[in-house]
C-alpha cells in the first residue's frame, strides 16, 4: 500500500518537486532520467527563455526604449494576472491588481538589476500588490454569515396590530378633543395636532396669541385629566416629532 502511494506521489508530483530532487520511488524504479528529460525540454527552458526576453526588454526600457517597454508591459499582463490569481485574488479584482502592478513596475524600474532574473522581481511586486488589493477588499463591507445576529436583530418596522392600536388611540384622542370647549379645541387642533405657529393660528382663528396659549394650556390640562393619570405628557405644543409620537402612544 505504501509502495503504491509513493509511486502515485511520484507520478503526481514528478518533475515539479520544489527542490528538483527525485523521489524515492523514482530512484528505486530508475525513472529519474526518463522523467526528468521532458521537463527540461519544455517547462524550465521555456520559462528561462521568457525571463531572458523580459529581462532584455526591461534593460532596454531602463535605457529609454519606449517600444521595448510597451512590449514588455504587454507581455507581462497575462503573467501578472496569473500570479495574482495564484495568490488568491478574486477574478473581478485581478484587473485592479494588474494595473497597480504596472504602475509599481513603472515607479520601481530603476530597482531592477539586469544581471538578475526578471520574473522573481515581477513576482515580488505582484505578490505585494495582490496582498494590498485583498486587504483593501477586506476593508469594504461584504455579506457575512451570522445566524445569531440575524435572529437577534430587532425589526424597525411597525409591529403587528400597531395600526389598530394607533387608530384606537387617534379615535379616543379625537373624541376627547371634540369634547373640549371651542377655544381650547381650536388651540389644540392648530397648535398641537397640526403644528401651526402661534402667528398662523392667531390669524386663522382671530384670537390673540395670549388667549391661544392660555387655551392650549387649559386644554392640555383637561385632556390629561380626561385620558387618565399616566398620560402626563400628551400633546406638547412643540413641533417635535418624537414628543408627538410619545404623546399619541401614551393616550
Amino acid at each position: 500500500m505504501a509502495g503504491f502511494h509513493s509511486v502515485a506521489f511520484a507520478v503526481l508530483a514528478g518533475p515539479d518537486r520544489p527542490d528538483g530532487s527525485a523521489s524515492r520511488a523514482e530512484e528505486r524504479f530508475g525513472w529519474t532520467e526518463a522523467r526528468r528529460r521532458p521537463a527540461e525540454d519544455h517547462g524550465i527552458p521555456e520559462r528561462m527563455t521568457q525571463d531572458r526576453t523580459l529581462s532584455a526588454a526591461m534593460a532596454a526600457a531602463q535605457a529609454g526604449d519606449a517600444e521595448a517597454y510597451r512590449r514588455l508591459l504587454h507581455d507581462c499582463l497575462p503573467v501578472i494576472a496569473g500570479m495574482a490569481r495564484a495568490q488568491g485574488v478574486r477574478p473581478e479584482a485581478v484587473d485592479d491588481v494588474v494595473q497597480d502592478v504596472l504602475l509599481t513596475i513603472h515607479r520601481a524600474r530603476a530597482t531592477y538589476d539586469p544581471a538578475r532574473p526578471f520574473l522573481p522581481w515581477l513576482r515580488a511586486i505582484t505578490q505585494r500588490r495582490a496582498i494590498d488589493g485583498m486587504r483593501r477588499a477586506g476593508r469594504r463591507s461584504r455579506e457575512i454569515h451570522d445566524p445569531v445576529a440575524y435572529e437577534a436583530e430587532t425589526d424597525g418596522g411597525p409591529a403587528p396590530g400597531q395600526g389598530l392600536e394607533a387608530r384606537d388611540r387617534a379615535r379616543i384622542l379625537a373624541r376627547a378633543v371634540a369634547g373640549l370647549p371651542e377655544g381650547q379645541r381650536q388651540a389644540v387642533e392648530h397648535l398641537a395636532l397640526k403644528e401651526r405657529s402661534l402667528d398662523e393660528t392667531a390669524q386663522l382663528t382671530g384670537r390673540s396669541k395670549g388667549a391661544l396659549k392660555v387655551n392650549l394650556h387649559r386644554a392640555l390640562k383637561a385632556l390629561r385629566l380626561a385620558l387618565g393619570p399616566d398620560s402626563a405628557d400628551l400633546g406638547r405644543p412643540k413641533p417635535d416629532p418624537a414628543a408627538r409620537e410619545r404623546g399619541t402612544h401614551d393616550v
Binding site: Q62, D65, A66, L102, L103, H106
Partner: peptide, 14 residues
C-alpha cells in the same frame, strides 16, 4: 495604461 506609461518613459540608471 500601458501606452501612457510607455509614452512617459524616461531613461533611468539602474
Amino acid at each position: 495604461l500601458v501606452d501612457s506609461l510607455a509614452r512617459g518613459l524616461t531613461p533611468v540608471r539602474p
